[in-house]
Every structure is written in C-alpha cells, then in structure tokens.
Simulated assay, not measured.
Amino acid sequence: MASITRRRAPKVSRPVSAEDEILAATRRILTGGASFTDLGVQQISVEAGVARSTFYAHFRDKTDLLLRLATDMLATSFDVASAWEPTDGLDKLAEDFLRILGVYREHAAVLRAVGEVATYDLTVRDFWSQGLAQFTDRTIAALRAEQAAGRTPADVNLVSAARVIVQGGERAIFDQVTTAPPTDDAAFARELAQTWWYGVYRRPA
C-alpha cells in the first residue's frame, strides 16, 4: 500500500489534469493490493499530489471515483465486443474474447474493487448491472438478425440465451482474471467462444 506520509514529486514530463492524477493514483494504490473500502480520500489525494479539496472538486465521493474507473473499463471492453459480428465467425470471436481478457487484466484492480463494493453498495451494483445490460442488448440484436437469416435456430429464446451467455461469461471472465495466470487466457477465450458459438449462435436445430 502506498505511503501517505509524503506527497509524490510533481510530474514535469507532460501536463495532466488533477482528475487524471487522481484516477491514476487510485489505480496504483489498488494495484498495490489496497482494499477500496479501507482506502481514504486523504491517501488518494496524497498519492495524486493534490489537496482534498481538489479531489472533491472532481468527484462527489469515493463511489463516484470508482464508477469513473469502472466506466473506462466497460467502455473499452464494449468497444471490442460490439465490433464482432456473427459473420466474422468463431475464430474472430475467440480473438476478441482474448482482447477483452487483456482489458480486464489491465484493470484487474478496479475489477476487484467493483466486486468488493458491489456486495454492499446498491449504486455500484446497479451500475455494473446496467453496464452488463448493454452487452446483453447487443447480443439479443445480433441473435435476432441471425435468426432472421436462418443461421440461428428459431427456437432459441433470445432474452434467456443472451442473459445466460453474457452474465455467465462475465462471471467466468472475472474468475479467470482474478484467479488464473495470463498464460491460460488463450485456451479460456477459445472455450468461451465455443460455448457462445455452438451453444447459441450455431446451436443444432
């Protein structure tokens, strides 16, 4: 855990905003193993080299800060996921899942913090659920188009199937990133892609 006894030396290599400093400082502290629940605004401010008043000029509270960090992670992973089309095929889906795993690993400390805080904070829990909903909606739209084209069986329940693979996939990715080594990611991404592909998109009629 980063020390709170002295301020960090100001950075002179490139200009950054106080808000960016606060976000980066929080990532550093969390990556060092700190619990977000136990992390104080004073510690974050010292690590970022800003006053407490500056923190509150940019963020309402710690929850607001965490949501900003998580928003960046979700937006990046959604950009990757939404670029895939079923016509791209299974191999491309596996490649994209591997890229998403990379995003989650890069933000693993934030992912753990979200999981930690969501157990007791309704705002964070609802935020994460709404974030997953956009993945679910995107999947439903893709499956609906595939059914219309005759490539996905008509008896697939779009809403239920999308919820199963999106929410189940998110839990599996969380577990992979937080408990398994990166060397296992390629095999994991392939298995996840095959589950989606053969379990729903190309399920036998």
Rank of each mutant, 00 (worst) to 15 (best):
S35A: 07
G40I: 10
D38F: 03
G33A: 14
I44T: 03
A51S: 15
S53R: 15
F55Q: 00
V50I: 14
G40H: 14
L23T: 12
G32R: 13
G32H: 13
T26V: 09
E47T: 11
T37N: 10
D38R: 12
F55Y: 01
T26N: 09
S45G: 01
R27H: 13
V50M: 10
A25S: 08
F55M: 05
A24P: 00
I44G: 04
Q42V: 02
I44Y: 00
F36A: 06
V46M: 08
Q43Y: 00
E47H: 07
G32Q: 11
L30Y: 06
S35P: 09
T31R: 14
A34E: 09
R28G: 09
T31H: 15
T54N: 14
L39R: 04
L30Q: 02
Q43H: 01
E47D: 12
A51D: 15
G33H: 11
A51Q: 15
S53D: 13
D38N: 07
I44R: 00
L30N: 01
A34R: 08
S45V: 00
E47G: 11
A34C: 07
L30M: 06
R52D: 08
A24D: 07
E47M: 08
Q42F: 03
R52M: 07
V41Y: 06
I44A: 03
Q43D: 07
G49K: 01
F36H: 04
G40T: 14
L30E: 04
A34L: 06
T37P: 02
S53I: 14
A51Y: 15
R52T: 11
T54K: 14
